[in-house]
Amino acid sequence: MNKIKTDEKNKKQELVAFRIGTQEFCVDIMSVREIRGWTPATAIPHSPKFVRGVINLRGAVLPVVDLAARLGLPVVEPTARHVIIVSQVGEKIAGILVDAVSDILSLDPNFIQPTPDVASQVARSFVRGVIDLEGRMISIITLDTILPAMDREAA
């Protein structure tokens, strides 16, 4: 705990950066449990399109969210080169399907700029801020709402 606090004071935040198509995104490294290659998922009946299905992660049944579909980007059929970022999403653990992991960033939170006011509703609800890094723009993704809201669906 203390360490994280001092890190915050030292104004360094670590992020895992990844790519979907031509866009770059990143998530807080603290929410990432592991990174693994794509394995075929078992479809879940009645699930939204962005849920690829579930995979077996050492005995645990894990949903995989296709982040491209979730963000409304062009969807491609995943190959063995695609990557699943296993992350903590609230109480649950989910896999996030992305094209490739590109970098681990360590940066000053002051570098994070507010999300530009774009029209895309999806972009606004998942992008927490953007980073200008040597001319690249990287969007910080919040994973909290990445899974479908099951309670609403059940009701």
Partner: peptide, 19 residues
Amino acid sequence: IKSLETNYGRTEGVAAATI
């Protein structure tokens, strides 16, 4: 029997998952 609810949620027509 593996719970589908732990990491996902209740799904209609599906009781649970297995490996």
